[in-house]
Simulated assay, not measured.
Amino acid sequence: MYSKKTYTLEEATKKLEHYCAYQERCHQEVRKKLEGMHMIPEAIDLIIVHLLKHNFLNEERFAKTFVNGKFKIKRWGRNRLIYELNKKDIGKVNINQALAEIESTDYIEVFNNLAEKKANSIKETNVYKKRKKLIDYLLYRGWESHLVYEKANELIK
């Protein structure tokens, strides 16, 4: 018969310290992890307070790391970054601080490189379909619509 593993408060705290030290986490991820460990709500609150107090959990740091990573590696635009951070219940102040760390010159450069690379890789002969594919791709990635439409009209004539 399968029995679920139970944790003492100390064991769960140590496990979550390691979980947070391994990679930046948001409050929501930590809460879900603790619920998955079948911890009671009072214990969850105690552990989260401990993690905050000992700087294992920091939402501002998480937001900055998240934005930096997704922008540089996945090439996401501001809209997608804001959407994903909102899904993780990150506060507006932390989102705005994290987005402010992206240099506007880097932002435009990444956007232009991504758009040009994608435009060259689309093997569509119909100009309108090709433009639509490029626009859909860039909008899905979270780039602002005014940038996307300008670039699509510039690249695909």
Results as ranks from 00 to 15, higher is better:
L147Y: 11
A100V: 04
A152D: 01
K5N: 11
E11K: 14
F111A: 04
K117S: 11
T6K: 15
E24A: 10
L85I: 11
L155D: 03
E154D: 11
V110N: 03
G36F: 01
K123W: 01
Y2K: 15
Q23D: 07
H50F: 08
I95V: 13
I135C: 09
L134S: 07
N112P: 00
K118Q: 13
S104D: 06
Y2F: 11
M1A: 14
I95W: 01
V67K: 04
E101Y: 01
K118I: 15
E109Q: 11
T105L: 10
T6I: 14
I90D: 00
N68W: 04
E84C: 05
K129L: 13
L139S: 12
H38M: 10
I82A: 08
D89S: 15
E11H: 04
E17M: 11
N126S: 12
E35A: 02
K14F: 00
R80S: 13
V93Q: 08
I48R: 09
Y2A: 12
K157Q: 07
K151D: 02
I82C: 04
T8A: 07
D89H: 15
V67F: 03
A63S: 12
V93P: 00
E144R: 15
N58Q: 04
A100S: 14
K129C: 09
I122N: 07
K88R: 15
F111N: 12
E154T: 13
L16M: 15
N55G: 02
L114Y: 04
W76D: 03
T8I: 10
R78N: 13
L81M: 12
E84S: 12
E150M: 13
A100Y: 04
A21F: 05
E42Q: 11
N79S: 12
L138I: 09
D106Q: 12
G142R: 14
L34A: 04
E144P: 07
L85E: 01
Y2G: 10
E124G: 01
D45S: 09
K53Y: 03
K129G: 10
R80V: 04
F62Y: 15
R131E: 08
W143E: 04
E109A: 14
T65S: 13
F111S: 10
I40E: 11
T105Y: 04
R31Y: 06
Q28E: 03
N55P: 00
Y22D: 07
N55H: 13
K4V: 13
V93D: 14
T65R: 09
K133G: 08
K64Q: 10
I135T: 15
K118F: 02
L52T: 07
R131Q: 15
G77A: 11
H38W: 01
K32C: 06
L147F: 10
T13Y: 03
Q23W: 02
I48G: 02
E116R: 15
S104C: 02
E154H: 07
L57P: 02
F66P: 03
I156V: 14
L155G: 03
Y137I: 09
K14T: 12
E29L: 07
K118M: 12
W76A: 07
N112I: 09
R31T: 08
H38T: 13
H27R: 11
